[in-house]
């Protein structure tokens, strides 16, 4: 290194340079609020950790319902409930809207062919509500499963199967409880490797 490097840019000089575009992210207050979720769910709600769900691109109604149920305690959670008690209902609504507007990005995952094949057969019991490959939910209260992390899907199904935890959706509980343990793994992996809807 040779010598001192002066001030990179005098502020005034830049201003003279022309219209200064105000950065959108700094201006919009929802960005700072949503950034508190990135630590666990990834930028734009795209998770890179197999046990943490991607949330960007799920429906607004689903996201909002989950968060409000957690906050009130009506729905079991390990972590989210304690966190959301620190957010107002308005903030929760704004977050649901924000993440619902992001694109749904299926995660890059692989599974053995046989597992996917078996999972495809199991998924016949799921398609009426979740769509052929998990990506076309029949209504706004149903989540996308295509490209969600296999591990997360498996963990979720195991929650629905566990009578000790309180998850209000009776039909989904029933569906999960009808699965064999091996089928839980298979169908989770089938859904997880789907790139399309």
């Amino acid at each position: 290194m040779k010598k001192a490097i002066g001030r990179a840019c005098a502020l005034t000089l830049c201003l003279v340079g022309g219209a200064m575009v105000a950065p959108a992210m700094a201006a919009d207050p929802i960005e700072a609020l949503a950034a508190t979720c990135n630590n666990c769910h990834g930028l734009n709600g795209v998770s890179v950790g197999a046990s943490m769900p991607s949330i960007g691109g799920q429906s607004e109604a689903y996201l909002r319902m989950l968060m409000l149920e957690w906050k009130s305690g009506a729905r079991y959670s390990a972590t989210m409930g304690r966190l959301l008690k620190g957010y107002s209902d308005e903030q929760i609504a704004a977050l649901a809207k924000y993440f619902a507007a992001k694109p749904w990005v299926p995660s890059e995952q692989r599974a053995p062919d046989q597992v996917v094949f078996n999972g495809r057969l199991v998924s016949d019991r799921c398609t009426t509500c979740h769509g052929e490959r998990g990506g076309q939910p029949s209504d706004s209260a149903t989540p996308r499963l295509n490209g969600q992390w296999a591990m997360y899907l498996e963990m979720e199904l195991n929650k629905y199967r566990d009578d000790a935890v309180n998850l209000p959706h009776r039909k989904m509980r029933k569906n999960a409880q009808k699965l064999e343990q091996a089928e839980v793994y298979e169908v989770s992996n089938f859904m997880a490797v789907q790139k399309g809807q």
Binding site: N38, N39, G49, A50, M52, T79, M151, M155
Partner: peptide
């Protein structure tokens, strides 16, 4: 809490780690 909570949070810890690393360094 039901035993499943401890199992779930152990897995969440690992998922958290991957996401926080990406949140800071990627």
């Amino acid at each position: 809490t039901p035993p499943i909570t401890r199992r779930l949070e152990a897995e969440y810890a690992n998922g958290w780690f991957n996401n926080i690393m990406a949140d800071a360094f990627v």
